[in-house]
Design a protein around this nucleic acid. Sequence first.
DNA 1: GCCAACGTTGGC
DNA 2: GCCAACGTTGGC
Length: 164
Amino acid sequence: MDRESFTGNRRRKLVPWLVKSEPSVYSIEDLRRDQVTSWEGVRNYQARNFMRDMQPGDKVLFYHSNATPPGVAGIAQVRKRAYPDPTQFDSASPYFDAGSKNDAPRWDLVEVAFERAFERAVTLEQLRSDAALAGLLVTARGSRLSVVPVSDAHFARIVTLAES
DNA sequence: GCCAACGTTGGC
DNA sequence: GCCAACGTTGGC
């Protein structure tokens, strides 16, 4: 991340992101219905660290994984900065983490708001084959991170593909 | 359902 | 710190 874009803990410039969700668990249409949701259940340190760098107003590409076809289904926006994910302390939750202590929470979530659903998703196949999207983290070999940053140019290109 | 490519855990 | 075993992700 660009250090000069930070002022203390606050970034001046907005940064685009991409988050993954299985639509059978939570889809862009679920977010349209809810308008705002807590992005709970992230249990990977690298993804968590990216979430901690999100700031309200940042655009978020909403990617449907394990979908047919997989792809970017729409856009959300960060509404609230990262704070401890309560599901880590809930023994009834699938996201429960017995190793996380109340006085030192391991996992955070952010709140995201619905912005728009694409009429046609930008498929993984499109993401891979488009020359302008070379270097996109989502299509990198072995990439499994559920939260990744996206460059401004890649973000704009994906929106263009969605509208073409 | 399969399985490659990861990340995490825990014994040593 | 190493690394084998195990669990998870996610495309197919």
